[in-house]
Computed example of a mutant assay.
Amino acid sequence: MSLPSALPAVTPVRPDTDEALARSLLAVQHAAYAVEAALIGDDRIPPLHETLADLSAAPLRWLGARVDGRLLGAIAWTEDAAVVDIDRLVVDPAAHRRGVGRALVTAVLDRAGSRRVLVATGRANRPARRLYETLGFAAATEEEVVPGLWITRYARPS
Rank of each mutant, 00 (worst) to 15 (best):
L26V: 02
P157K: 15
R123I: 13
P47N: 10
S5L: 13
I75T: 02
A57G: 12
W150N: 10
P47S: 11
L39E: 01
A34Q: 14
W77G: 02
A6P: 12
G136S: 04
L135D: 00
W150F: 11
R123F: 15
S24K: 13
L7N: 14
E79P: 03
V90T: 11
R98G: 04
Q29E: 03
I151Y: 09
P15S: 12
P147S: 08
E144W: 07
A9G: 14
H49D: 13
R97T: 04
L52K: 07
T11S: 14
A138H: 11
A74H: 07
A140Q: 11
R116V: 15
G122L: 03
H49K: 11
A53S: 11
R44T: 07
T78G: 03
V84I: 08
E133R: 05
L60V: 07
D42M: 15
V35S: 02
L7T: 13
F137Q: 09
G136T: 05
T121V: 03
R102Q: 05
L52I: 06
L109S: 00
A20H: 15
Y132K: 00
L48E: 01
P15W: 05
R98Y: 03
W62Y: 02
A103W: 12
R97A: 15
A139K: 05
E50H: 13
S24G: 08
E144M: 11
T78V: 03
H96K: 07
R130M: 11
V83P: 09
A155H: 06
L26Y: 06
R102G: 04
V108W: 00
G69S: 07
R44I: 06
W150P: 06
A37E: 01
D42Q: 06
A58F: 05
G148I: 12
D87C: 00
R126E: 11
A155K: 03
E143A: 15
A58H: 01
P46H: 04
P4K: 15
T17H: 10
